[in-house]
Amino acid sequence: MKLNENTILKNWPIFLVIALLAVSPFMMNNYWIDVFFFFGIYALLGLSLNIVLGEVGLFDLGHMGFMAIGAYTTAILNTHFGIPIIFLMPVSALAAAGFAWLVCSPIIHLRGDYLCIVTIGMGEIVRLTLINNPFGITGGPNGVFGIDFLSFGGPLVIDTSIESYFVIWIIVGLSILGLINLQRSRIGRAWNCIREDEIAAESTGIDVRYYKLLAFVLGAGLAGVAGNIYASKLMIVSPESFTFMESCMLFCIVLIGGMGSIPGVLIGSAAISLFPEVFRTFAQYRMLIFGVAMVVMMIFRPGGIWPRKRGAIEFKSLLPKAGEDNV
């Protein structure tokens, strides 16, 4: 992409957002910088779930399981073997992606609600396994602590809030670039075709099984990266961060923002992470408010706040319909 005047003029909202994200940490205190750090983590997770849910239309309510695999891979390999966090980033991504490939291969043919239930089970099994402390490596309910900071060697150690803020948002930015390219490729098209009509997709030459698995593997890999950054930022990982409720939150991010829409994911994750901070007093009603928001959304804006441009994908269109399989 050539960065001439025209591209800047046409895409001014994007450049405005980038500029705002770049300067805002210098005007915030550490508390708010951390809030924005978690906004970034949610954005990355939302983007990763969006591949599976938004692009392909597969219901995945166990997505935190993949992040947990990434976070624990980083935590265990770092604390036991002292491997630097930076090297563990690709390792965590591969571990989560490999895990996704392993558990999703046998279930990938399930559709809609069945797949949803199995992914819930998968996420919960990961969490319970971590609690049960297999081989004494996951630390049980307490988790693993004493994880190093991310370091690029020498004095370049990411140990302040503002530094980790930039790390996460640069990674979010790079992921968005890659994901936009994917959306515009034959792979993104194949994913969308599957979401629209599986039988037609298969008959059009798309290996439905392969592309569904690919979505899970890429989504899990990205969630694994989020896990790696999360672990080194908090310096501790414990099973309670990866609950079913958190997976539901990710689901909400994609639904609220607009399925298959990258700006939508950013808006959704902003809503999930910033809202409770702004309305501190209502914090205990967080779930209630989200519930109501979801219901209202489904009725008045079924395509999400910022739907994908070429046509809003409504959540209910993904639900299995009677007689859909009759060709």
Binding site: R186, R189, A190, N192, C193, A201, R310, G311
Partner: peptide
């Protein structure tokens, strides 16, 4: 059975999946 929420052009582009 078309890909309803995709454009006409994208529908036909998808038809070439097996040739790319």
């Amino acid at each position: 059975r078309l890909f309803n929420n995709m454009t006409c052009l994208e529908n036909v582009m998808a038809g070439q999946h097996c040739r790319s």
